[in-house]
Write a protein that binds this DNA or RNA. Structure first.
Lengths: 345, 345
DNA sequence: ATGAAAGCGCTAACAC
DNA sequence: GTGTTAGCGCTTTCAT
């Protein structure tokens, strides 16, 4: 394990010069820099993060706080973050809340974030009031992916707009009976997004004067199995909807499975639209509102990186793009399907 | 940001005693320890990982190297690792190879692993010869999750046995025409497991004297969409199989989707069995061979932790349990389905 | 353009 | 049981 000292000796300069040369700082003659670089290469020198962290105050790592890793959206964001970070030489430090449900208190002021990372990127979390203020007063750059938080930088789709777009699509196809599968996840970590989408659904239906039955809302907890079970119940009622707006593609898959099991044809008897454009959605022919979590992760990384570089972007949450992708799970509502009681086998 | 110094002052002892007291080392009187602890709490003191890392040589973090995060198996393992690590106070560093396909060279001897982490856990990677020797000569504990590597500690199911169990199940049901959907993933990172399963399939069929047609092997790349496409082709041929052994549940889902699209009934016309018991498999009624990646991750973490604690377990890869879970996608082969050319619409 | 030297905050001998 | 004292390997003034 060569140290900066070894490199200094081998190249006949001081450790200070080695440090400068290797980090590309100014005030190093080209020849010296070259010589140092060669010595470093020959020795296989790698600076110790602990040492440079201790003396510079920078760790070279950023923490990514996720509610769980088992959801497509989150893994995509993490990969996006990691990719962007890596390019700048930063390491990704994972803080998975799913593995320590009890440990949320003092989360952000705790070790990991405060001393291990130069910045924090938090995703899809419904923060408590205490956490929000912790986040705002953190001594390091912070970025949020998902529902925006006033006073903090972040990126995410406009959930109301996304929901509206999905519902508009169903309405355009003539659907009047539109259900929603949504709901918060098992740890209550992601309510904000779920709430925004559910609220948008209610508002849209109300504003358009469409019927809004209580049992047209089902909680799928952002999970396929749970969504399928919920849909199974909902779709077996006599007054079943002709269209379902699912809060995520994974939940939409659950609805699709339920419909298939009940012999309800999609899209002839039931239209389904999701949110995300999951990597499997095309295989399911799912109509959905696409967003790009990988891109959002990279954007969040860019925000904290910019702050670290001394060029902080404005503190406004930025809106990520979304786009309706029409595929095979949505179609015009059957005209005959007007009477509450009519259904096929 | 209180330092150890502040705590020492406030509690009226030396920094050395603070260090000892807080880390639970012996030779500290109960009263002193208590007083130190109170001072630390009052000050909100958190030791700096950089500083303690620099002086102790231990970073308090372990690196997890994954081929990608977008596969169920890997995310489960990572969560298992993180959970086990967290309990012991270690942090998890993510090294996602998917985000830097070009950067595999010198991977293990590179910064992250060498100076950032006290140990390395690598999953589902088909290492090059160079990487293998790098891994073996790494100055830190290493554990592998997945296909075993001679000379290294690790855990994983016996892929041959798992495959045999799946195929045996199909044979027991009277299937003679058994296809396989397998294949390595996009980065060539996980060939070993794919190869083991494919080889087991070939060997089993050969040993039992069952037909083994070339086009009964399809490469699904461990991805649903690709598996669906491959199955679509395979299942449309006149000599289609009556049973499909998929190398993972995600690939099995693809086969299921393809079958549904072609109007091939499962399990009446086609039986499908996977490997994993993915969290969605029950919703698909998929018969599969269960394994527990979360558990495997935790076990791998325990291995490196034990080494770090000075009680290294034996260097034999250990076999993780697996179990056939029979659900609804497999059934007795139709007796009429003997002639190569017969098929329904 | 380069070097000397003082830490960064903690741990680990070694004394007492 | 507790304090002293070196460093750990870097970065960073401040000189030169």
């Amino acid at each position: 394990m060569a140290s900066i000292h070894d490199v200094a000796q081998r190249s006949g300069v001081s450790t200070a010069t080695v440090s400068r040369a290797l980090r590309g700082l100014p005030n190093v003659s080209p020849v010296t820099r070259q010589r140092v670089q060669e010595a470093a290469d020959a020795l296989g020198y790698i600076p110790s993060p602990s040492a440079s962290g201790l003396s510079s105050g920078r760790t070279g790592a950023v923490a990514v706080v996720v509610p769980s890793l088992t959801r497509w959206f989150f893994t995509e964001v993490v990969e996006g973050v990691d990719a962007a970070l890596r390019v700048e030489g930063y390491d990704t430090f994972l803080v998975d809340l799913a593995v320590r449900p009890g440990e949320r208190e003092r989360l952000f002021s705790h070790t990991l974030l405060r001393k291990r990372a130069d910045a924090v990127i938090a995703l899809g979390i419904r923060f408590t009031g205490a956490e929000r203020s912790e986040l705002r007063s953190l001594p390091v750059p912070v970025a949020i992916v998902g529902a925006p938080l006033a006073g903090l930088r972040g990126i995410g789709v406009d959930d109301a707009a996304v929901s509206r777009s999905a519902i508009q699509h169903l309405v355009d196809l003539g659907h009047h009976r539109i259900a929603h599968v949504g709901g918060h996840d098992r740890f209550g970590l992601d309510r904000s997004v779920a709430d925004l989408r559910e609220r948008a659904w209610r508002a849209e239906l109300r504003d358009r004067g469409l019927p809004l039955l209580d049992h047209w809302f089902a909680s799928g907890g952002f999970l396929l199995p749970q969504s399928k079970a919920a849909a199974l119940t909902m779709l077996q009622r006599p007054d079943r909807p002709t269209g379902v707006f699912a809060g995520s593609d994974e939940m939409a898959f659950g609805v699709l499975l339920a419909a298939a099991e009940l012999g309800i044809r999609v899209p002839e008897d039931l239209s389904v639209v999701g949110i995300d454009d999951h990597s499997w959605s095309a295989a399911f022919h799912l109509t959905t509102v696409r967003q790009d979590p990988h891109e959002q992760g990279a954007a969040a990384a860019a925000m904290v990186l910019a702050q670290l570089a001394g060029t902080p972007p404005p503190i406004a949450p930025i809106a990520a793009p979304h786009e309706l992708i029409v595929r095979g799970t949505t179609a015009a509502a059957a005209r005959s399907r007007r009477l509450p009681a009519d259904r096929d086998a």
